[in-house]
């Protein structure tokens, strides 16, 4: 793939040849992208920069990385961030138990022989970041919910994301032969540091516009009637404009579409909406407010 396109750069991952190519192939993989998404994915691919995706829950941030992996025929390496994640979970760790076994097994060796042996590849447990860098095949590295990790981990990510290399003191510096396509996602519960943001391309993934959302619903819930999908998306649009505690996202739209299909509803009328509103809205005061706003009696 890297030979396609007009100017393949040295650090490009080379999954795509143009923005249209991104749109088309992501759609084939079941991910309908907006212009913003397609353009940014193409740039991330071509410039070889990590992609930072921010946005409300349930708009398809993680799904985007998975779709790119499917399209590029790449393996997906996922690092799920959580509070208290550290170097030994994100980067690498020495397998202490195995090292001890090795030491006890070779009793009559000299210390020098043992030392060079126990700090070799065999005793290294690679964690997601190192795994993504070491592989030879094309890779998509997904660092999920980056904002959940502590600030110290961001510092760790800086080296990895800017040069795509990791330094293991006993083994030396390991540099990526094949630069992974990197996606970081964040729910913006915490401001990520300026330094990390600067190394990434930024994409704010928002709710799709009505036309795109309709296509998404039709793709994900093929059995749904076209007219019903249309009014469904319009109701969702009205709910989003309503200033609720938790606006319904794409995932909820799809859930609702599935619910309507299961209920066998063929039009969206008052009673159907009233009974199934709980699928879309997750707070009692939101439901009350929405019922009032849509003048459901």
């Amino acid at each position: 793939m890297a030979e396609q396109g007009d100017r393949p750069r040295g650090d490009a991952t080379g999954f795509f040849s143009s923005v249209d190519d991104v749109l088309e192939r992501l759609a084939e993989a079941g991910y309908l992208a907006s212009t913003a998404v397609a353009t940014t994915v193409f740039l991330a691919d071509r410039l070889g920069k990590p992609l930072l995706v921010e946005g409300p829950a349930g708009v398809g941030k993680t799904e985007l990385a998975k779709a790119v992996a499917r399209v590029g025929g790449a393996r997906l390496v996922r690092l799920q961030c959580y509070e208290g994640i550290d170097e030994s979970r994100a980067l690498y760790e020495w397998n202490h138990a195995k090292q001890l076994l090795r030491i006890t097994a070779g009793r009559d060796e000299t210390w020098d022989e043992t030392r060079t042996d126990i700090f070799s590849d065999e005793f290294l447990l690679t964690r997601p970041l190192l795994t993504a860098i070491r592989g030879d095949e094309p890779t998509v590295l997904l660092i999920d919910e980056t904002d959940k990790a502590d600030v110290e981990v961001e510092g760790l990510l800086l080296e990895v994301l800017s040069d795509f290399q990791v330094t293991v003191p006993e083994l030396g510096t390991i540099t990526a032969t094949q630069r992974p396509f990197t996606v970081l996602t964040s729910n913006a519960t915490r401001e990520l540091s300026e330094a990390l943001r600067r190394r990434c391309l930024f994409l704010h993934l928002d709710f799709p516009d009505a036309e795109l959302e309709q296509r998404i619903v039709r793709l994900k819930v093929p059995g749904l009637d076209a007219v019903l999908a249309d009014s469904l998306v319009r109701v969702i649009g009205a709910l989003r404009a309503m200033d609720l505690r938790k606006a319904p996202s794409v995932a909820e739209t799809i859930d609702w579409a599935r619910t309507l299909l299961a209920l066998g509803a063929d039009t969206l009328d008052e009673s159907v909406v009233r009974t199934s509103l709980g699928v879309v809205l997750k707070h009692q005061d939101d439901i009350a407010k929405a019922a009032q706003g849509l003048t459901l009696v």
């Binding site: 007219v227 019903l228 009014s231 319009r234 109701v235 649009g237 009205a238 039009t267 969206l268 009328d269 008052e270 909406v273 849509l294 003048t295």
Partner: peptide, 8 residues
């Protein structure tokens, strides 16, 4: 589909 979406 009836009058419901008209409100929107």
């Amino acid at each position: 589909p009836g009058d419901f979406t008209e409100r929107l």
